[in-house]
């Protein structure tokens, strides 16, 4: 079975692809922090940060439509969480509707908050897309490890990435086997079957886990993860880090001066 991969464009070559994964990870964190701390309503700052991401996206030679599509795919989730804000925030009413027994009103301040939330979320997502499409997951994990992220978490992430497609294939085969014998039945029965399938998938994963562990032990695994060729920061990383940091900070400096 063929699946698309989250890091499908990381084989491209650009200045950004060649940066150390740690530089990119820290820079992304800093970017997200900067965006999140932007005071509501400072639209010029959002535009500024958007231009930074846009510039980096262009630099990275990712297909622009790809980044856009990817980022839009996440918007519904943000909306799902944030859509209620305009209805609950108190303030000047922008419009009210009668739905059956309820009277619902939307406030301007609520809409204002919603717009801020969506803008921040979208910028953060663009940044994460940039990070995940320019960095191989193996490199990123190695970077995390050297940044001091606990070994267990790095291992869990790497196993997750390695086996998620194996599990998806297994689930898909079960689904097909179910569909080829599906002759209808009540909703309750279908739900029961679905529950059984989830249970079976869990047991299979558990057993696979045991086999994988046996395979690791068979090759001398003793709980200690060893890594080769540690990453080394290059001049380009320092340069990028300084320029990026200054860019990120500049709007805040302007704010302070004002």
């Amino acid at each position: 079975m063929k699946h698309s991969f989250i890091d499908q464009y990381c084989d491209l070559d650009s200045f950004i692809h060649r940066l150390d994964p740690r530089t990119k990870f820290v820079a992304s964190l800093a970017f997200i922090l900067a965006v999140l701390l932007t005071p509501a309503g400072k639209w010029w700052m959002f535009v500024f940060y958007f231009l930074i991401v846009l510039g980096l996206l262009i630099f990275s030679r990712l297909p622009p439509t790809y980044a856009l599509k990817r980022s839009l795919a996440v918007i519904p989730f943000v909306l799902l969480i944030a859509i209620f804000i305009p209805f609950f925030k108190e303030g000047e009413i922008a419009g009210s509707y009668n739905i059956w027994l309820w009277k619902i009103s939307v406030t301007y301040s609520g809409l204002f908050v919603l717009a801020n939330v969506v803008a921040k979320a979208w910028l953060c997502i663009l940044c994460l897309i940039l990070l995940s499409s320019t960095t191989k997951l193996t490199e990123l994990l190695r970077g995390l490890q050297q940044l001091g992220v606990p070994q267990a978490i790095v291992l869990i992430l790497s196993f997750m990435y390695r086996y998620i497609f194996v599990l998806m294939d297994e689930a898909m085969r079960m689904q097909q086997a179910y569909q080829s014998r599906d002759i209808g039945g009540s909703l309750l029965r279908r739900l029961k079957t679905f529950g059984n399938m989830i249970g079976a998938l869990f047991i299979r994963s558990y057993e696979r886990g045991e086999r994988i562990y046996a395979a690791m032990v068979s090759r001398g695994f003793d709980g200690q993860v060893r890594i080769l060729n540690p990453l080394r920061l290059k001049g380009a990383d320092v340069f990028f880090g300084v320029v990026f940091g200054v860019l990120l900070m500049s709007p805040y400096i302007i704010l302070l001066v004002q």
């Binding site: 997951l137 994990l141 990435y161 390695r162 086996y163 696979r208 086999r211 994988i212 395979a215």
Partner: peptide
Amino acid sequence: DPDDQLFSL
């Protein structure tokens, strides 16, 4: 099952 044997990225 080689998927058990090959667990790295």
